[in-house]
Amino acid sequence: MAEEVENFEPKIVAFLCNWCSYAGADLAGIGRYQYPPNVRVIRVPCSGRVDPLYILKALQNGADGVLVSGCHPGDCHYIEGNYYARRKFAVLKNLLEALGLEEGRVQFSWVSAAEGERFSQVIREVTESVKKLGPARRMVKSFEIPKEIEKEIAEA
């Protein structure tokens, strides 16, 4: 177990808003700021577009962590989308943690289009903290297929 955690490379799903955080990620690339390759980016129009269901689905399908990132308060391309998102995410995060999901499986950040370096910093922090938590188990859907059956149907 300890060894598993040591070599553990978490899979993190990052929902990035098109106008700020996604552009921030782009800028991180242009500026050659390094960050861990653990994030799988999903571009969304606005952090307000992220339904709590998406976050839960990511966790259920085996994501070790989920990050949602949008524009700073006051900077939303749609004026107020991230304000609604903030209320929604506060409720979701508190509920999941109240039910006993590890703190830090689901994280949120504000990253603007000008903050390439900050984006790389956020990803480093999120990756580190999820790594510390170890592989996600609690919310992951079991998809047990007996090994011999998996082998049997794999052969052409």
């Binding site: 297929i145 007996p146 059956i149 998996e150 049997e152 149907i153 794999a154 052969e155 052409a156």
Partner: peptide, 14 residues
Amino acid sequence: FFFNKKTQKIAEPA
């Protein structure tokens, strides 16, 4: 049963 979309094979659980 379980299936594999690529190989088009199925197998029933024991």
